[in-house]
Design a protein around this nucleic acid. Structure first.
Length: 432
RNA sequence: GGGGAGAUACUCAAGCGGCCAACGAGGGCGGACUGUAACUCCGCUGACUACGUCUUCGCAGGUUCGAAUCCUGCUCUCCCCA
């Protein structure tokens, strides 16, 4: 083993529940461990990043990570943590989602290089579930678990006892499906460990139980705590939506900003969870940060490490540079014109855009129609007037008078005008 | 099946004939402060050809000089008894 997997997770605060003897097992042999990914969307957001990082830790620690895409279980719907019955996804959407999830995961884990014994594997439970007949399933799997046992699970109890609309047989069966995955992987790939979020504990233990009853073997489990934010709001969500790991859903700039804006308290936890910096490096950073929190050493490092890991060094540098420009007090025309169109477009990727014709600009456009009719930056004249009154608007990061007329001289880099409302709302007007 | 309560802006929630574009809270946005933060403070939060006008209070009609407020019908939601 290159490092003590369990111990590593422990100091990082990434262990919520662990089955007895798991640590001993991990330290005595190369273990195959699996984590399941739900194909409920066609990409993964940062909520799934903890799971991905766990796979990476497994691999780095010298074990073998198995990423399981839930092609079959995705058709059933996991009731864990859900208060109401879920809608089923269509086969078409599922296929698309599975492909998307696969491609994201393979960016992070090595499925090809390295030593044979800890090369990662990607499996889809649809492959072994699709030909399983109901009769076989009932005889081979169902017989081993009592309904009493299944009913005792938190995810089931909540739905059966409380109010609400109850729970369909479909969702009730879910834990057997997931449990059987574990049996299958145990038999076929000698996979002895399942990892997941703390909400998965119930499903996972059904799996270890099935392994014991169906094979007589012993399987292990480990769950991670839910990543939290100090203010109690949900991790990974912003007002504008989820933070995704795909650039066409969340631009690198936004991604970078998400981490950069972490609160002090969150940054202390997240630096351990989301980076691979070792214990000493983390503690040093935390200590240094506490001396002068205003420098935000932790946030900077966190944003750098995670952005580089997910999007690469170059993309990180662009995002970082963009942030510097966007948050500097003022940018002179000279500075603006040092950028070419492509660089600026890259920096402002993800910022909403509109087009305005050169001819109109040569005529000059009054500010209110410019903000509404010409660009749709603001939705009504009332809103434009309000914004003017608030003195919240800026063109190319510069405030202006209410009777401003937008002309060609406001165009930067020969091709665009940068509009801004407040500090963080940008809008790009392309001139053509 | 019988009885009752209610539907108001992004959400919760007042208003129960004119003073209502509609109290208040939350959220959102903006400003000051700051660390691109938290806290705090302040302002804005239907639209328009803008000291005025128009459209909004479940839907459709009606009473009235005048309705979110009263009447009638419809739709939906919730509660209680069986």
């Amino acid at each position: 083993m290159s490092y003590d997997f369990v111990n590593e997770l422990r100091w990082r605060g990434m262990i919520h529940d662990i089955m007895p003897e798991t640590e001993e097992l991990m330290n005595s042999e190369i273990v195959s461990g699996y984590i399941g990914f739900d194909p409920t969307a066609d990409s993964l957001h940062i909520g799934s990043m903890v799971q991905i990082i766990l796979l990476m830790h497994l691999q780095r620690a010298g074990h073998r990570p198995i990423a399981l895409v839930g092609g079959a279980t995705g058709m059933i719907g996991d009731p864990s943590g859900k208060s109401a019955e879920r809608n089923l996804l269509t086969q078409e959407i599922l296929d698309k989602n599975i492909a998307g999830v696969k491609s994201v995961i393979s960016r992070f884990i090595d499925f090809e290089g390295g030593k044979e014994e800890n090369r990662a594997l990607l499996v889809n439970n649809y492959d072994w579930m699709k030909d399983f007949t109901l009769i076989d399933f009932a005889r081979d799997v169902g017989k081993h678990i009592t309904v009493n046992y299944m009913m005792a699970k938190e995810s089931v109890k909540k739905r059966v006892s409380g109010e609400g609309d109850g729970m369909s047989f479909t969702e009730f069966t879910y834990q057997l499906f997931q449990g059987y995955d574990f049996v299958h992987l145990y038999k076929e790939l000698n996979c002895k460990l399942q990892i997941g979020g703390s909400d998965q504990w119930g499903n996972i233990t059904t799996g270890t139980e099935l392994v014991r009853r169906m094979t007589g073997g012993k399987a292990y489990a480990l769950t991670t705590p839910l990543v939290t934010k100090a203010d109690g709001t949900k991790f990974g969500k912003t007002e504008t939506g989820n933070i995704w790991l795909d650039t066409d859903k969340t631009s690198v700039y936004k991604f970078f900003q998400f981490w950069f804006n972490a609160t002090d308290e969150d940054a202390i936890n997240w630096i351990k969870i989301f980076t691979f910096l070792d214990e000493k490096a983390c503690n040093d950073l935390i200590e240094e940060h506490s001396k002068d929190p205003g420098f935000r050493i932790l946030q900077k490092k966190l944003a750098e490490e995670v952005t580089v890991m997910v999007h690469g060094l170059e993309a990180y540098e662009t995002a970082e540079e963009a942030s510097k420009i966007l948050f500097s007090k003022k940018v002179s025309m000279d500075q603006w014109n040092r950028f070419d169109k492509e660089t600026l477009l890259d920096i402002f990727e993800g910022v909403p855009q509109a087009h305005v014709s050169k001819a109109d600009l040569e005529q000059g456009i009054e500010i209110i129609p410019f903000l509404t009719d010409s660009t749709s930056f603001l939705s009504s004249n009332s809103e434009a007037r309000r914004a003017l009154k608030e003195n919240s608007l800026a063109i190319n990061k510069e405030k202006f008078e209410d009777d401003k007329i937008v002309r060609m001289e406001d165009v930067i880099a020969g091709s665009m005008i940068l509009l801004q409302r407040g500090k963080k709302n940008y809008f790009l007007v392309l001139v053509d």
